[in-house]
Write a protein that binds this DNA or RNA. Structure first.
Lengths: 188, 188
DNA sequence: CGCACCATGTAATGCGTTACATGATTTT
DNA sequence: AAAATCATGTAACGCATTACATGGTGCG
C-alpha cells in the first residue's frame, strides 16, 4: 500500500525518497506512515516495475540525491486504484484495547493509570492536529491555488483525525468513570 | 501481538486453536483478528517457548483436537505484559483515508459513490455491534458470575467500537456534504 | 447431493521494522 | 563540541496473509 502513498505524492511533482518521507510525516501520518528504509526499497521496486523513473542529481555541499518521477504507467496504475471503491470495512488492530480487554488481573489502580496516561497522549495529539495542519495546508494553497480542490479532500482527512481524537477523549473519560465506579478496589 | 490474544483467552480456560479463533471472531474482532493458519503457527511457537502445553484428545465422530493449556511461565509473561503501560500512541493505517486523500482526479461523483458506500458499511457495522454483543456477553455472565469484573472491561471495549462507528457515520455525513458543496461537478 | 461445520496443519509470499553502514553541513 | 538535518542504501528478522492439503459429520 505504501506504493500508492508514493505514487500519490509523485503525481504532484518529482521528488526524492527523503522528501517523500517528510511529506508523509507532515500530511499523511494521520492515516499512513513508513520508515525511510521501506520508502527506499519500495521506490526501487516501483522503478523495476516501470511505475517511476529516477535520476541522480549532484549538489554542492550536500549529498547527491535521487529524484523520482512518475511514469505514464505509474499514473495509470494510481488512477485505476483510486477509482476502485473499497467494498469492505478495514480491520482494526489496537494493542491498547487488547490490553484493556484482558486487564482485570492487574487491578483497578493500574488500569486507571493506563487510561489516564492514554488520555494525556490523545489530548496532546488533538492539539497537534489543530495547530500543525492549519499551518502547512494554508501555505501550500497560497503557493499553488490550482490545488484548491485537492485541499478540500486533505482537509476532510485532517478533520477525521480531529474527530477521532475527540471520540477517544470522550470514550476514555467514560472508561475512567466506569472503572472508578464499577470495579472493586485492589485488595492490599 | 497475537501471542497475547491467545494467552489472554487461555488464561481463562484451556482450549483448541479452532475454539480460540471463534472467541476472537465473537469478541475481539473489534480490535484484533487473525486467520486460523496464524493461530496454529503462533500456538506452536508459544509451546516451544514454554508458555503453553498441549495434548491431543480423541473424539468420536469428530476430528482429533489439540487442547492448549497456559503454563505458569505463560501466565507470568501475560501479566507482565498487561502491567506495562503503553506510553506512545499507536499508529493508524487506513486505506480508505489514503484513497480519499489522493482522490481528486477521479472526480466528484466517484468520490461521492465511495463515501456513500462506506456510509452503508459502517451503518451495518454499528447494528452488528449493538446486537451481537449484548447477546454473548450477557450469556457468559449468566454462566460464570465470577467474571463480572472482566465483563466491565469487555463492555468498555465494545462501547469503543460503538463510539467509533458513530464517529465514522458523523464524519462521513459531513464529508458527503462538503464534497457536494465544495467540489465542482465533473466536466462531461 | 452439496454445503457448512469441525479440525489441523505447511509453504510461499508480502509487507513492515530494526539494525547496520556512511558521511558532510548546519544549527545550537 | 554536540546534535540535528540532509541523504541513501542493505540485511536480517518478524508478523501476517494466501494458497495448498486433508477428511469426516450433520443438515437441508
Amino acid at each position: 500500500m505504501l506504493k500508492y502513498v508514493l505514487l500519490g505524492f509523485l503525481n504532484y511533482q518529482p521528488m526524492t525518497g527523503y522528501e517523500l518521507e517528510r511529506h508523509i510525516q507532515s500530511s499523511t501520518a494521520n492515516f499512513w506512515h513508513a520508515k525511510l528504509s521501506q520508502i527506499y526499497t519500495t521506490l526501487k521496486t516501483l522503478e523495476q516495475a516501470g511505475f517511476v523513473v529516477s535520476e541522480m542529481e549532484s549538489q554542492e555541499g550536500r549529498p547527491d540525491r535521487r529524484i523520482y518521477t512518475i511514469t505514464e504507467a505509474g499514473r495509470n496504475d494510481l488512477l485505476q486504484w483510486l477509482a476502485q471503491p473499497l467494498v469492505e470495512l478495514e480491520t482494526v488492530k489496537s494493542t491498547f484495547l487488547l490490553k484493556l480487554f484482558f486487564a482485570r488481573p492487574i487491578g483497578k489502580q493500574a488500569i486507571l493509570t493506563h487510561l489516564r496516561l492514554h488520555y494525556d497522549l490523545h489530548q496532546q495529539q488533538l492539539k497537534t492536529y489543530r495547530e500543525i495542519h492549519t499551518k502547512t495546508a494554508g501555505q501550500i494553497l497560497l503557493d499553488h491555488p490550482v490545488l484548491a480542490n485537492d485541499a478540500v479532500l486533505w482537509n476532510l482527512v485532517r478533520r477525521f483525525g480531529e474527530l477521532r481524537e475527540l471520540m477517544y477523549l470522550e470514550w476514555l473519560q467514560e472508561a475512567i468513570d466506569v472503572v472508578e465506579q464499577q470495579l472493586p478496589g485492589d485488595s492490599a
